[in-house]
Amino acid sequence: MSIAEALDMGRYSVYVWSCYGLTLFCIIVELVWLKQHRKMVWQRVCRMVRMTKRQKDEAQV
């Protein structure tokens, strides 16, 4: 059996591959979103920590 035949899925290629493709796509999108959200939160927390530290230092001076 050739690769083309295997990919063809006995006429059902569109249906089968779109399902697998969509699933993979959704998983990748979810992971990217997760990463970006995490990055955003991390940066915000960093900014806040730096700010409170500066305030503390100024209070000591």
């Binding site: 979810e30 992971l31 997760l34 959200h37 995490r38 939160v41 991390w42 915000r44 927390v45 960093c46 806040m48 920590v49 730096r50 409170t52 530290k53």
Partner: peptide, 25 residues
Amino acid sequence: VALSRVRTEILQRESKTDWVAALVQ
């Protein structure tokens, strides 16, 4: 994925605590 979301959530809610400050530094 759920654990990763929980981690972000913790970071967000505990952002004023000492241990997060230590983590950031």
